[in-house]
Computed example of a mutant assay.
Amino acid sequence: MAVPDPHRNVAPPGWPREVRPPDTPDWERTAASWLLDLCPPDYRRYAGLRKHVVVLARFAVLHVEAGQAACRRGLSEARADLGQVAGAEVVDAAIATFQLEEARLLAVRRGVGLVEEALRGRRYVARL
């Protein structure tokens, strides 16, 4: 019986919990499911994205980055745009929401980038 290699099947920090580590059974299926959940629902219609998970990962990266850009724009324009139609308390709450979403998307972007790298063949080694 082969001795398990402790350096295989390592998921780096920031790896999404919903995706099994690379090279474990069904890891690409779990990656595809998670990536599709990140993308607009219409992406599920495209057989090419479901069939070629690495392509789906690239689409997901770009989609998440677009969300990050939208948050940055929302933050930079919130006071000027919303101040005309809402009170200071509402504007402050909107800014806080943009900040929370920006932080969430930062973590998602890291995870989707790691999954894309793994789908392209990059593997991580456990360090002590």
Rank of each mutant, 00 (worst) to 15 (best):
P21K: 09
A93G: 08
R8T: 15
V3M: 09
Y46R: 02
R110E: 15
R58A: 14
A31F: 10
E102Y: 09
L100W: 07
E101V: 02
K51P: 00
R44A: 14
L49P: 00
R58E: 08
D37Y: 03
E18R: 09
L100V: 10
Y124N: 10
V108F: 02
D81A: 08
D26W: 12
I95P: 03
P16N: 10
R120P: 01
Y43C: 10
G83Q: 07
A126L: 15
V125I: 13
L105G: 03
A70T: 01
R29N: 14
L75C: 02
A80M: 00
H7I: 02
V85P: 04
D37A: 13
A118W: 13
R120H: 15
V53Y: 03
H7T: 05
D37W: 07
E116P: 02
P41A: 08
Q68F: 00
E77G: 05
H63T: 05
L56A: 04
A107N: 03
P21V: 15
R73H: 11
D92S: 13
E77F: 00
A31H: 13
V112A: 03
V54T: 12
L38Q: 04
P40F: 09
L100S: 06
A93T: 14
V19G: 04
A2S: 15
H52V: 11
T97C: 05
D92F: 06
A2R: 11
A118V: 09
R8C: 13
A86K: 05
V10G: 07
A57I: 14
L62F: 03
S76E: 08
